[in-house]
């Protein structure tokens, strides 16, 4: 266990990076998911087709591949664009943090599209009709009736999406992101103790996923409080 001493710091900062990726990709994932769901729910056939294409592509492609493609591809593209302005630039790349964050947000966003769409449709039409019959505007009905119910329905699956985001972060170490798995690789280089180091990474991720799971459970408890017969 004292093998780990000297590395606690690095693991800590690696964990911070994991948290940062999580928060950034969470925002983007929700964004992509909502846009995708909206596209699928809109009447427009083109929007529907594009959104379908989005889900198919990002649900059918291995996550590691998306990350590699985004990272190396964007590097090539960016370098080419930059060379148009300044020909002596050799290489320009997108920081692994952003390449990875956007990649996993796109991937999980594909699943989130279906989740949000299902939650939207899961709200009983009767509730909306009742709101309208009471004289509420479409917008009011949306905010006060549809969104709260949608949220409650989406929560379990949304929790799974958040867990996916956290676990996919480990893949970003492959392109050099300085999160915990990356730290472990370096630690193994000097200490020669792969087992302990990788177990440590596992424990850290388990910690993160536990926090997420507990949070979702608490939110579900809160969100369902009007559904329980006894309080």
């Amino acid at each position: 266990m004292d093998v780990l001493s000297g590395w606690w710091d690095d693991f800590f900062w690696g964990s911070v990076v994991v948290a940062q990726v999580f928060l950034a990709s969470l925002v983007l994932m929700v964004l992509f998911g909502l846009i995708g769901a909206a596209a699928k729910l809109s009447g427009s056939r083109i929007a529907h087709k594009i959104a379908n294409g989005y889900t198919i592509v990002f649900r059918g492609t291995p996550e590691i591949l998306v990350i590699l493609l985004l990272y190396f591809g964007s590097a090539i593209t960016l370098t080419a664009i930059a060379q148009l302005f300044k020909p002596d630039i050799k290489f320009l790349d997108v920081p692994p943090f952003w390449a990875g964050t956007i990649a996993i947000a796109l991937i999980v966003g594909g699943y989130a599209t279906e989740t949000f769409r299902g939650a939207f449709l899961g709200v009983k039409p009767g509730s909306i009709e009742a709101a309208q019959a009471l004289g509420m505007s479409g917008f009011q009905a949306f905010i006060y009736v549809r969104v709260p119910e949608m949220w409650r329905l989406a929560l379990p699956a949304f929790g799974n999406h958040m867990l996916s985001l956290i676990k996919n972060t480990a893949l970003i170490s492959i392109i050099g992101l300085n999160e915990t798995l990356f730290v472990a690789k370096q630690a193994i280089g000097t200490t020669g103790q792969p087992f302990i180091m990788y177990i440590m990474v596992g424990v850290i991720y388990l910690g993160f996923s536990s926090v997420i799971t507990l949070t979702v459970m608490a939110l579900e408890h809160y969100g369902n409080r009007h559904m329980r017969v006894t309080t």
Binding site: K167, L181, F195, V201, Y205, S209
Partner: peptide, 15 residues
């Protein structure tokens, strides 16, 4: 289910 599959692979292969 709470840990990344990549970490599990590394534990088995390297660890």
């Amino acid at each position: 289910r709470g840990t990344p599959i990549l970490v599990q692979i590394f534990i088995v292969y390297y660890g």
